[in-house]
């Protein structure tokens, strides 16, 4: 009994994942190579050429999604790092309050928050209407249905997932180590670049994983804040599935997206996750 105890611990979670992740994935893989339509039914034909077809048909949206995800990730790092730094080193006894504030948006539904951005950014909404009446921006200026609106929405919705891992990494940096750097003739800026930043890179690395992947696959922001020119791959998958009932194409697109992201992340991990990078950063 004792020997099996550790396995018992992973049993509930393992079963959960097996049933709700692995089984649907196998099912989807099978769907992606079927042919037919929703009225006459789908037949398993092991039609692999669909992958080439969807990739060539939706290549633009693929690249656009990756580009949006990349830009939104970089913007997130720039916004999140100083915030996480401030909470970790200047938060004092109020750290948990500030973290709660960071997480506060999660108490409101994702879709609702994104819709509220629509009101905020509308052509005559809260933000633009005063600017327009003051003549600060031209009357035909708009933010909605632009790339800026979609990337802004992505950053807004996923920012906490960047802040939290960076905060955790910074929080673990021993203040004595920073003092040691200062004691060894490092000015404040050097103590940051040589010690604090390298030690917090694992947090940035985790934050990138936690934001880039869902941002690239996101469809809500492009749907609500974007226009026809901002369609992301998530929107295509969603409409293939739910509007066109073209299950094989949607499944093939999903798998292609997953494969592309896995490859991208492995490449990223190889390049940035190694100790060599940390050492180089510390030099």
């Amino acid at each position: 009994m004792k020997r099996f105890a550790p396995y018992l611990l992973i049993l509930p979670g393992g079963l959960w994942l097996a049933i709700f992740l692995v089984v649907p994935m196998v099912f989807m893989a099978s769907v992606s190579t079927q042919e037919g339509d929703v009225v006459n039914g789908f037949v398993q034909t092991f039609n692999l050429s669909i992958y080439g077809d969807v990739l060539s048909q939706y290549g633009t949206q693929f690249l656009r999604s990756a580009g949006y995800g990349l830009v939104a990730t970089v913007v997130s790092i720039v916004l999140a790092y100083p915030m996480a730094y401030w909470i970790a080193f200047r938060g004092g006894s109020r750290k948990s309050t500030y973290l709660l504030l960071v997480l506060l948006p999660f108490f409101v539904s994702f879709v609702l928050r994104t819709v509220s951005w629509k009101f905020l950014l509308a052509d005559n909404g809260l933000l633009l209407s005063p600017l327009k009446s003051l003549g600060l921006v031209p009357a035909d200026f708009h933010v909605l249905q632009t790339t800026v609106a979609v990337i802004g929405g992505l950053v807004y919705n996923y920012l906490p997932f960047m802040i939290l891992p960076i905060y955790v990494a910074l929080e673990r940096v021993d203040p004595r180590v920073v003092e040691a750097a200062q004691d060894l003739y490092a000015a404040r800026r050097q103590a940051f670049t040589k010690v604090v930043l390298p030690l917090s890179l694992p947090g940035v690395f985790a934050g990138v994983l936690m934001t880039f992947v869902p941002m690239t696959a996101d469809y809500v922001n492009a749907e609500i804040l974007g226009g026809p020119a901002n369609t992301m791959i998530g929107n295509i998958i969603q409409s293939r599935f739910l509007v066109n009932n073209d299950y094989p194409s949607a499944a093939a697109l999903s798998f292609a997206l997953m494969a592309a992201m896995l490859i991208g992340i492995f490449a990223y991990a190889r390049a940035l996750g190694t100790e060599n990078v940390l050492e180089a950063a510390a030099r």
Partner: peptide, 26 residues
């Protein structure tokens, strides 16, 4: 220079880099 109670060595650097840190800054 100070020797800290918990040593406060730089965990991301090897022994040589730890020792060279001050000289590099200078």
């Amino acid at each position: 220079n100070m020797v800290f109670q918990s040593y406060a060595l730089f965990p991301h650097m090897n022994v040589w880099e730890n020792v060279a840190f001050g000289l590099r800054r200078k």
